[in-house]
C-alpha cells in the first residue's frame, strides 16, 4: 500500500457562441447631458462579469474613461433583445453589439466636437481621459462632456447608438453533418499531476499547469476569475459531483450539500496558468469566451493522471475513491 504520483495531459478547444449561430444580441448606448454613457442591455450578468466586460468594451470604443460608462442589464423594457448568457457567447456576441452601438454614439459626439472646434470629424481623436482633440494638436481640444452637451443642447443631436451582432443560423446537412459552426474557438492544454493513495483510493496534492488561448483577455482579472473558478469546477466534476451516483439506477440521490459533494477551500489544486492571446478576427478586440472551456480539460486530465499513477482506466465519472479501489481490486485479481 502506497501513494503514487501520476501525470495526465489533455488538449481541448471550445466553440464560442451558439453552435449554429442564429443568436443575436443587441445593445443601446446613450449619453446623459454630461457625456456619461449608459449601455442598456437585456443580457445577463450571472457572475461571469457581463456588466464589467461590456463596460470596458464600451469605454474603449467611445474613447472615454471607464468611469464614464455604466452598464444596465436585463430589463426587457429598456434593453433590446439578447439571446442570453450561455454557450460562452456573452463577450463575443454582446461585445460586438456594444462596439457597434458605441461607434454610432461616438460618431455623434465627435461630430459635435468638430463643430465646436471648427474642424473635420476625421481630424479628431479621443485620449481616453475625457478629451477630444485635433490629431497632432492636443491643445485644440474639447472635453467629451462639453461635446456631448453641445450635441444635445446646441445641435439637437442624440448622442446615442444601437448595435446588433448576428451570425445567421446555419443549416445542418442530414447526411454528412456539414454545418457552419461558430466563427471562433478558444483553446487549452493542461497537465495535471496528482497523488493516488492505493489504500484509500483518494486523490490528493493536485497540481495543474495550464495554457489557455482566449483571444484577448479584455480584463485579465476577470479572465483569471473564470480560469481559476472553472478549473475548480472541472476538478469537482472529475472527482466529486453526481446527482445520480448509481447511474443509471436512481438510488442514493443527493438532496442537499452534505450529500452532493464538492471540493471545499481545503481541497484546492495548485493551479499555474499561462494565457495566450490570438485575437479572434471577429471578436470584440479579439476576445473569445473562456467561461465554459476552462472546466472541460480537468476531467480527462485527472482520469489520465490516475492511470499514470496506478495503471487503472477510469472511464466512468466521477472518479471517486470507490471507483479507483474497485478498479485496483480488479487489476490485482486479473
Amino acid at each position: 500500500m502506497a501513494k503514487h504520483r501520476g501525470r495526465g495531459t489533455v488538449a481541448v478547444n471550445y466553440p464560442i457562441g451558439m453552435n449554429l449561430g442564429g443568436d443575436p444580441s443587441q445593445a443601446l448606448v446613450h449619453s446623459n447631458p454630461e457625456g456619461q454613457f449608459t449601455v442598456a442591455l437585456s443580457s445577463i450578468d450571472l457572475g461571469q462579469g457581463m456588466k464589467s466586460v461590456t463596460r470596458q468594451i464600451a469605454a474603449e470604443t467611445l474613447g472615454v474613461p471607464v468611469g464614464h460608462v455604466y452598464v444596465d442589464t436585463a430589463d426587457s423594457d429598456t434593453g433590446a433583445q439578447c439571446m442570453g448568457s450561455f454557450a460562452s457567447r456573452g463577450t463575443h456576441r454582446v461585445g460586438n453589439a456594444v462596439i457597434a452601438a458605441a461607434k454610432e454614439a461616438r460618431a455623434v459626439m465627435l461630430a459635435a466636437a468638430a463643430r465646436e472646434l471648427e474642424v473635420n470629424p476625421t481630424d479628431l481623436e479621443t485620449d481616453g481621459l475625457g478629451n477630444i482633440h485635433v490629431k497632432g494638436a492636443p491643445q485644440r481640444s474639447v472635453t467629451t462632456k462639453d461635446a456631448a452637451n453641445a450635441a444635445q443642447f446646441k445641435y439637437g443631436e442624440s448622442v446615442s447608438g444601437s448595435g446588433i451582432f448576428l451570425i445567421p443560423m446555419s443549416d445542418v446537412d442530414v447526411e454528412t453533418g456539414e454545418m457552419n459552426t461558430v466563427s471562433c474557438f478558444a483553446h487549452c492544454a493542461m497537465i495535471v499531476d496528482l497523488t493516488v493513495d492505493d489504500k484509500t483510493g483518494e486523490i490528493s496534492d493536485v497540481q495543474i499547469n495550464s495554457a489557455y488561448e482566449i483571444g484577448r483577455a479584455l480584463n485579465p482579472k476577470l479572465m483569471e476569475q473564470q480560469l481559476v473558478g472553472g478549473a475548480w469546477m472541472g476538478l469537482s466534476h472529475a472527482a466529486y459531483e453526481t446527482t445520480e451516483p448509481a447511474y443509471p439506477s436512481r438510488d442514493h440521490r443527493p438532496f442537499d450539500f452534505s450529500s452532493y459533494v464538492m471540493p471545499g477551500p481545503g481541497d484546492l489544486a495548485q493551479h499555474d496558468i499561462a494565457i495566450l492571446e490570438r485575437p479572434a478576427p471577429d471578436g470584440p478586440f479579439g476576445g473569445k469566451g473562456p467561461g465554459e472551456m476552462c472546466a472541460n480539460p480537468v476531467l480527462p486530465a485527472v482520469a489520465n493522471a490516475v492511470f499514470d499513477a496506478v495503471g487503472v482506466e477510469i472511464d466512468t465519472l466521477p472518479i471517486t475513491p470507490e471507483r479507483i479501489l474497485r478498479a485496483l481490486k480488479e487489476q490485482r485479481g486479473a
Binding site: D45, G49, K51, S52, R55, Q56, I57, A59, E60, G63, P65, V66, Y70, V71, G128, R216, A217, L218, N219, P220, K221, L222, E277, R278, P279, F285, G286
Partner: peptide, 17 residues
C-alpha cells in the same frame, strides 16, 4: 496579431458590480 495599445481593454479594472 494584436494591438496591445488600448486604454481600457486589457486592464484589470474592478468589477462594476
Amino acid at each position: 496579431e494584436r494591438d496591445d495599445n488600448l486604454n481600457v481593454v486589457g486592464k484589470p479594472i474592478r468589477r462594476q458590480d
